[in-house]
Design a protein around this nucleic acid. Structure first.
Lengths: 346, 346
DNA sequence: TCCCTGTGCTAATAGGTATGAACAGAGTTG
DNA sequence: CAACTCTGTTCATACCTATTAGCACAGGGA
């Protein structure tokens, strides 16, 4: 490739100085350029196929017009469910609106220190972190450094933490209220990702709903098995736990969509008819829930909106707009499908 | 945010020159630095939380360690099927391997001139273009400029065009051979995206298979309706076309997965039992096909591999490795599911 | 004549890094 | 002891743009 065309080349061709070229092309208000000069510069730029050098501009302005995105793990796009895909879709739409490009970080996980360096090196104006832990050291490092950072679907305890999430507590309540209204009285909560903040929040909501209904939350069976690579095995163990509990739960709340799908499809082989013996409520309610067999009753969170809103918030931070830190909670709703039914229908 | 720490700051603290810091941190072979000096520099950098300024580095080296990605349209991530998601997953994995970050371009479509500027401005070392037209002016512009460019799932006529795709022709043949083996003799091909290169290639393969079986390809009904926003309507028209054709086709080849799903789910309402009256073969064979009702027989193309391979190829181009232009074709296979059956089972 | 104001443009510089040329010093060779 | 080699380091510069202060000039008022 031949040498790039620079603004000096444009200046020479238009018979003006490089400064003038810059002034014309950036067209800031308050600088006076005669129409003839402007015209000459634009023509020269066009003729030479001039494109600005973003590296040089970034060096001098400190702005890149790029937003960093850190997925919860690489290649996790469609690995298990549509969560990340939907979020990323929302982020894309927000970025389009804000006229920014997206920088997808692909540092080696879980080496957060390297990732932190990769973010703070000036390759973007701010960063969106997706679904990390409630005590994530990467998040803390970035916030401490004063780097514009938005947490999606989680947050950490930090005075400068900005986050966008759904109302997990409400979601837990809604799910449980639905089961209660169907007559269920004995419940189980399946939440393998023990450290995850949303797992705790959803449980909290579920327990609140139980208390409201005059039921002791202590009675809810917590299925805390960690997810094992051996699908058959953990499903089998879960089924056993359900069976050997007295009284056997008839309502199951499952906080992750992909696990709910696996359960709904596998539990019948272990003697649970759904929803006759066991009603199942899940979370997220993407197409994955809608197209499972049977379609899964699920709490819907507006993932695309969350992504778009996070970009808006980040944009505010970057432009120096004054915004109060904290968690923005977007509303959830319940999509009732075919995995829940009245208790004791047989 | 306080002023960034520069390599000069590190140099001062370590008692060496800025050049030395650069030499230590980049550690190129052939430059000699004493172990003590190296140690001092590293400690100083660590202590100051030094991160390199990528804009400055990019300015002087002309390399960014970023790969551009241009989706076929913004927000198209999971809009209709899993194509883009899978491709992007593959690209992500490839980027991780090659230690590059990804720059997702979100310029306003279809303004390819703006997009072209956004790509050529030095924000990435090369670019992956996904599923564009066979005469795409953006692709041509980039290739003419000598910018490292890889086309995914398409290619244009240009001596410097590099592309990665699946073997669409073979895919078309495989699909048709499957239908032929089941005894079908009358076929339809549904391909609304008339301009798309893969539509033509898949048809070509299908027709070749027909010829081989001694059947006149002219007899294949081409359903060329353009996709209309009104789903009900185009499906209805398609059903009518099938019905009024004599002899009525019993084998349908549908070149896009999301359309196949819609058809398979809607055609029974128009009197076509699947597969008893009509066998349907689709393309891509992602989870979308696997989880449709009924699950769709589909030609599988290795989308993740295509993404990863494209990154590898691009990396070769960038590092100046000599590679021959042209289209890399990855193999396809047929996933037989429940939408195809022997002809005349009733 | 001189001063003042405004217009349209330019000169000069900063921003942080990589890199080839140059250099100092110690050791080696003839 | 002069010439030379080798090692480890520094000097100086280029990369390209945005921006600020300031210059030349014209026109107008006193």
């Amino acid at each position: 490739m031949k040498r790039r065309v620079s603004s000096h080349d444009v200046a020479r061709r238009a018979g003006v100085s490089q400064s003038t070229v810059s002034l014309v092309l950036n067209g800031r208000a308050g600088t006076r350029i005669s129409p003839e000069t402007r015209q000459r510069v634009l023509e020269a730029a066009q003729h030479l196929n001039y494109t600005i050098n973003v590296a040089a501009r970034a060096l001098v302005t400190g702005r890149t017009n790029r937003l960093g995105v850190v997925p919860f793990f690489p290649g996790g796009l469609l690995d298990r469910d549509l969560y990340y895909g939907q979020i990323l879709n929302g982020i894309t739409l927000g970025a389009l609106e804000a006229n920014h490009n997206l920088l997808l970080h692909s540092a080696n996980y879980p080496d957060w220190q390297a990732l932190s360096g990769d973010i703070l090196n000036g390759s973007s104006d701010g960063v969106l972190l997706i679904g990390r832990g409630g005590d994530d050291p990467l998040t803390r490092t970035l916030l401490d450094a004063g780097f514009p950072t938005i947490c999606l679907s989680y947050h950490i305890e930090h005075p400068a933490c900005f986050a966008v999430d759904c109302d997990n507590v409400l979601g837990g309540s809604i799910a449980m209220q639905h089961l209660l209204a169907l007559g269920h009285r004995h419940f189980a909560y399946f939440a393998p990702a023990a450290g995850a903040i949303w797992v705790a929040e959803r449980r909290q909501g579920a327990e609140a709903a139980l208390r409201e209904a005059g039921i002791d939350p202590q009675g809810m069976l917590i299925l805390g098995e960690t997810y094992s690579a051996d699908q058959e095995r953990w499903i089998e163990r879960l089924a056993a736990s359900l069976q050997y509990t007295v009284p056997t739960p008839t309502g199951l709340f499952c906080s992750e969509e992909w696990q709910a799908r696996l359960l709904v499809e596998a539990l019948p082989k272990h003697g649970f008819r759904i929803p006759e013996d066991l009603s199942v409520v899940s979370f997220n309610s993407t197409e994955l829930s809608a197209r499972a067999r049977p379609p899964i009753t699920s709490v819907h969170q507006p993932l695309i909106e969350i992504g778009a809103e996070a970009v808006r918030l980040l944009h505010s931070l970057i432009t120096g707009e004054v915004v109060a830190p904290g968690v923005r909670r977007l509303p959830v709703t319940l999509d009732v499908r075919e995995t829940t039914g009245p208790v004791g229908t047989v």
